[in-house]
Design a protein around this nucleic acid. Structure first.
Lengths: 250, 250
DNA sequence: CGGAGGAGCTTGTATAGACAAATTAAGACA
DNA sequence: TGTCTTAATTTGTCTATACAAGCTCCTCCG
């Protein structure tokens, strides 16, 4: 019973019936709705509090703190899926797609020999037509050759590849900060030398073979990474967006 | 009452009166010992289970799982615990500790009124005697006043606070990049205007009350954040360290 | 018009009782 | 001796009640 109540409330938070920042129904209302006792309702609320979904003080109804993420993997790996989940319009301008010898960093990340060829893709990623991220992505040959089969500006590379049989299963993302090189600054429409939030990503197949290495550089005034961290050892990671003024993007 | 029971059991686990892997007293025994009701005892046990200290199944007494430290939560929240886990020597120079009115950002993060006082701590964090991070931390008064009771340069603020009854349960970390202000650059021994990796952290109690807001600024050549992301499993987040040359620190 | 006080809501906490489900240990039986 | 049954113990779950503490809003009085 308490699990059912907690699950229902979780679903409502995800569906938006309970908006983030808004109050939950009072315990008395939940007692009436589920036709149960207050102790059981409180047990359900304790579970949600445990997960960090709600918070509250004495005398006030608990408020929804954040929504659990629907599909963590896709959302985090696919820029397109991420933007769409947040209700924005993703876009991209493919500046270059080329088959060439792997760079030193790429070869190291993908476990290739220095002379091996990869497919490089350079794309400027947009949110609501504003530049947000510069993506330098390198794919191993068998995967990269698939990229010539479809329009990279039409949608997500990730969905395009998985639709053609690629099985991306794990990824590691390393986040740091760098100074914007002049070329990057022009494309991202910021000042050269300004700070960039860099995410270097290695995606692997189910067998553990690395197939993509990417160097994504975000405008730090428009994208941040947020890690929610509870004692229960559940870690959640999301990317957040900000408008040019630095305010949370609705 | 339930807090007293939980605290007593915690102490016994730490002291070894309750051995790791061994069973806890049954709920009936605890009811008699503390002269309370079963509901209260169960509330205390739920708190311990929440912290991962105990685990149990139906029909069996809960068993002590122990190992409160070294877990992801502590490692991610405590600079000291993190460095020690990686086999390095953490250090710090407390540059300032002051009670003053909360800044605008702090008040917003902690849910305080503009005039409310907080305890600010400014610390330079070192790894193996090299500056790595600049920490600006603000605590709500009841927690912050505890900071005057012990030596901040002796060890972890986090363990000092939890030992004095603070119950930090969840935290959110927002990561972005900024240009180093001149003052920060001097302390971190880098060039002014260079990129800094910033982590803004809000830590809350079990009830969801925010009690700490921190602005940590890392040298990006020495610290990065890594997110491991599998399709089936949960997300794991760790921080990584690099030597001045940018190579992984052994 | 404004502040003080209180009523009515909320959650936090504690108590007592009841039944279900799982484990464990003792005892009966072949 | 080995196995099955049964009883006792223990935790999981739910219900009902009571009071304390904090918040909001309304009313009343100065």
């Amino acid at each position: 019973m308490h699990a059912k109540i907690a699950g229902t409330l979780r679903d409502r938070i995800v569906a938006g019936t309970l908006s983030v920042g808004g109050p939950l129904p009072s315990e008395a209302q939940l007692v009436e709705e589920f036709n149960t006792s207050r102790g059981t309702v409180r047990q359900a609320l304790a579970a949600l509090r445990n997960e960090g979904l709600i918070e509250g003080r004495q005398g006030q109804s608990p408020v929804v703190r954040c929504a659990p993420m629907g599909q963590p993997f896709e959302t985090f790996l696919s820029f397109t899926a991420w933007a769409e989940q947040l209700g924005h319009r993703p876009g991209q301008r493919t500046l270059e797609i080329a088959r060439r010898g792997a760079s030193e960093a790429t070869a190291a990340a993908l476990g290739l020999d220095p002379g091996d060829h990869v497919v490089d893709v350079l794309r400027l990623r947009l949110i609501d037509d504003r530049p947000v991220m510069l993506e330098r992505s390198s794919f191993v040959l068998d995967l990269g050759m698939l990229l010539f089969q479809f329009d990279l500006d039409a949608g997500s590379i990730y969905t395009g590849l998985t639709a053609r049989g690629a099985d991306l299963a794990t990824a590691t993302h390393t986040i740091d900060a760098i100074s914007a090189p002049a070329a990057d600054a022009v494309l991202l429409e910021i000042e050269a030398g300004g700070p960039l939030l860099r995410e270097r990503r290695t995606a692997t197949t189910r067998e553990g073979r690395p197939v993509e290495y990417a160097d994504d550089r975000y405008r730090p005034d428009r994208v941040t990474f947020t890690i929610a961290n509870a004692r229960t050892q559940r870690l959640a990671v999301v990317r957040d967006m900000f408008d040019p003024g630095g305010n949370p993007w609705p």
